[in-house]
């Protein structure tokens, strides 16, 4: 495995090096223009686009071409809307045939309310897509064993959720994400629920390799300013992680040491 996690080097996913650890979603923006400006301000090098929003019959699709215009950005089509493995695989295949490349953010979310990922169907789809040569980045619940199973299936990352998509609730799955980070041999991207730059910084301080943000930027009063704020939050969190955060202490340090009598 070329990637060694936890080091201080750049982020590498499937042999591609990323200078930014902030990935962006493209839904919910008030216009394509607003999205483009936010992408530029975020410094992101990986941007995900819902295939359901793309007219794959139209080579000039506005959403797709506007993302593809950014030379340094890895396009990451996603299978949002798929309710089982079959639908996700079909979407990924047609996207590749239509020239969207072979990277795919695998989303199998049968529940349209909370958009929570189906672990069984996600694993099934990942196994098929990896065999077919896709670079698969699966969106999952923060389930450490599922993360390992996906890694064994050959996915390029795992993308555990902090809290449900669009909820802005931050990292409610902290304990399990810590285990995933500890156990994972592939980059861990905290995806979904990050509502503020401090949430993103927290994920990075925990040792996540990257974060993916959409709602908090797209629905901000000033998406460009917010994209910049997330960029800074991610960089600060990563710097803190690389600097080596002192461990928090559970007990106060007694002014009269309990073992003072030993001196």
């Amino acid at each position: 495995m070329s990637h060694i996690r936890g080091g201080k080097g750049p982020l590498i996913i499937a042999d591609r090096t990323f200078g930014s650890r902030l990935f962006l979603g493209t839904g919910k923006f008030s216009s394509i223009r607003a999205m483009e400006e936010a992408i530029a301000a975020s410094g992101s090098e990986m941007v995900t686009v819902a295939l359901r929003r793309v007219d794959l019959d139209n080579p000039d699709d506005e959403l797709l071409t506007s993302v593809q215009r950014f030379a340094d950005i890895q396009l990451l089509p996603n299978t949002s809307g798929a309710r089982d493995a079959l639908e996700a695989v079909r979407l990924a295949r047609i996207a590749r045939e239509m020239g969207c490349g072979s990277w795919v953010k695998l989303e199998v979310t049968p529940d349209p309310r909370y958009l929570l990922p189906d672990p069984v169907e996600t694993l099934k789809a990942a196994e098929i897509l990896v065999k077919e040569g896709f670079t698969v980045l699966p969106y999952i619940n923060a389930d450490p064993i599922l993360a390992k199973r996906l890694e064994e299936a050959g996915t390029a990352t795992v993308m555990p959720l902090g809290s449900p998509i669009g909820s802005n609730r931050g990292i409610r799955t902290e304990d399990n994400i810590r285990i995933i980070i500890e156990m994972s041999g592939v980059p861990v991207v905290v995806d979904a629920g990050l509502g503020s730059p401090s949430h993103a910084a927290q994920a990075m301080e925990m040792g996540a390799d990257a974060v993916l943000v959409n709602t908090a930027i797209a629905t901000a009063g000033d998406p460009v300013l917010m994209a910049g704020a997330f960029r800074t939050g991610v960089e600060a969190g990563r710097m803190a992680y690389e600097a080596g955060l002192p461990r928090g202490r559970e007990e106060a340090e007694a002014s009269s040491p309990l073992t003072g009598f030993l001196r």
Partner: peptide, 17 residues
Amino acid sequence: IRRRGFDPVWKDWDRML
């Protein structure tokens, strides 16, 4: 819709779904 600050979306589903 655009003037009101919203993005008019013509496609938000797919025949593969």
